[in-house]
Design a protein around this nucleic acid. Structure first.
Lengths: 282, 282
DNA sequence: GTTCCGCATGAATCGATAG
DNA sequence: ACTATCGATTCATGCGGAA
């Protein structure tokens, strides 16, 4: 039931990517396993000192399959160990530049609800990097697709809004991805910044998704148009793919573990079915 | 009228710092001239490719004068040139590690109202790095001094709160330095995260202040106690010094340009006078 | 049908304890 | 001395059962 361009692969992206044609993908959005973090994944072996060397061949293949006007958004964050932040992400940026990538921008995902905890030497880590790489200075960017209502929600007459509306609205301020677009009627729109203030999704139906659907959705709308192709070489439970279906983009997903692959497969099948039914209603 | 420990220097910090005793400063907070940014400053000549080499001798002196349990907070952000983010800040972190600094944390200053503008290839830059370096894994940190009102979700459910309470709840993610915090007496406090959501405040006649007073204030309260000594080797218009006076910390400021030095001198004199009058009222 | 409350849980990190 | 494992800490969120 998947269409020609919508494909899932069960396998190691290092091997799978080799078979892809060059210059064929409009956007790569992915969140690779962080160094020594996912204990249940086969990537467990990627230690901190080997991380950059492990990733560079992958980023090289990604550069090959990406269209010249396409974008690569890498969601990643280094850990703190023994009181120090690790530096492998910084080194990765420098090496990818040597590889020919342009480091165009660093977007910040400011997590609305981050992991709890208390330590004597640091606070909770409430942000992650979304590194934006391109092959060319002239890349596709559709800024209007992610515009947000101007001004703060406080400007609206509070007394007329229910508390639910207030809560919902606050969550839209930075993302502009809420369904309640009706609230925006008559409001002027503004361009967002390079900081995304989004909640993490926890303990809901999302099987182990490491980022909320709004994160890939934002970049998909920003860097692609309908019908474009989006690749996620570390698909996980398929959050990027779901975001693609909901926004009429094609997707290619690669996942190395059978467990996550099957979770993603089922979720995508359901989302596809929903999309078909919805298109029939129109 | 300055006290023994409160000192201002007109000169190049590379020369001035040499005369300082070692292990004598509790906190260094500074925002150095960004590469090729301050055209009016004598540091204008610091080009991007020379920036790291220019800064390393300074950071080495800073390490010497900092107490072993002290902290160094470096507010900096690389520029984007010809569509690319520059990498000199990343390289600086790596080199300072080699120099013996511990890169303890990277705090994010999420700017509430950032500089306006529109470009075809990027959004407005709404964040800056506040790099936290230390000499030792065991450094002073007073987390209780910067606690913020806890999310109201658990205490009372939202439906029971007034609209005013809802507005204040927004300040949960901000610094907690507002006067409104006093209204939260009796409410539980929570520890903040490593993201500071602060306005950029150009309200005062702050001549060219590159950061709002709340930014140094937050770190001063977090990393020092009353009577401690704070150093800003690139004082500018004296924002860090003002924050010190208001929080009963001693300060040492160094500024290379006579214009900024005089602006800072006057502002500090006024703030000192205010502080003295206030202490008499008690 | 609502609203309300309890509870589990999530890209975490440190220090102590054990091998 | 070095690595490996475990408990303690913490809070926004959604789910489900109760009022």
């Amino acid at each position: 039931m998947f269409m020609e361009w919508d494909r899932l692969y069960l396998g190691d992206c290092r091997a799978v990517l080799v078979g892809f044609p060059q210059n064929s993908v409009d956007l790569i959005f992915t969140s690779p396993p962080y160094a020594d973090n996912r204990r249940k994944s086969p990537y467990k072996g990627v230690s901190i000192d080997r991380y950059v060397k492990w990733f560079l061949p992958i980023s090289n293949e990604l550069k090959r399959v990406l269209k010249p006007e396409g974008s690569f958004v890498l969601n990643i964050k280094e850990r703190a160990i023994h009181g120090e932040r690790q530096t492998y992400v910084l080194e990765l940026i420098l090496k990818m530049k040597q590889q020919g990538w342009l480091w165009t921008e660093e977007y910040i995902w400011h997590k609305k609800n981050c992991y709890p905890g208390k330590w004597p030497n640091r606070f909770r880590d409430a942000w992650e990097r979304c590194l934006h790489f391109t092959k060319d200075k002239r890349f596709k960017m559709f800024q209007e697709a992610v515009m947000v209502p101007m001004g703060s929600w406080k400007e609206k007459r509070l007394s007329q809004l229910s508390n639910n509306d207030l809560i919902r609205h606050e969550s839209t301020v930075s993302s502009g991805l809420d369904r309640k677009v009706s609230n925006w009627v008559g409001r002027r729109l503004a361009y967002p910044t390079n900081v995304l203030y989004l909640p993490t999704e926890c303990s809901n139906r999302n099987h182990g998704a490491t980022f909320p659907e709004t994160l890939p959705t934002w970049f998909i709308r920003l860097f692609t148009q309908e019908g474009d192709v989006v690749l996620d070489p570390f698909m996980g439970s398929g959050t990027t793919a779901i975001a693609c279906i909901k926004n009429n983009r094609h997707f290619i997903g690669i996942e190395i573990t059978r467990q996550y692959y099957e979770v993603a497969y089922d979720a995508i099948k359901i989302e596809k079915a929903k999309a078909i039914l919805q298109s029939l209603n129109h």
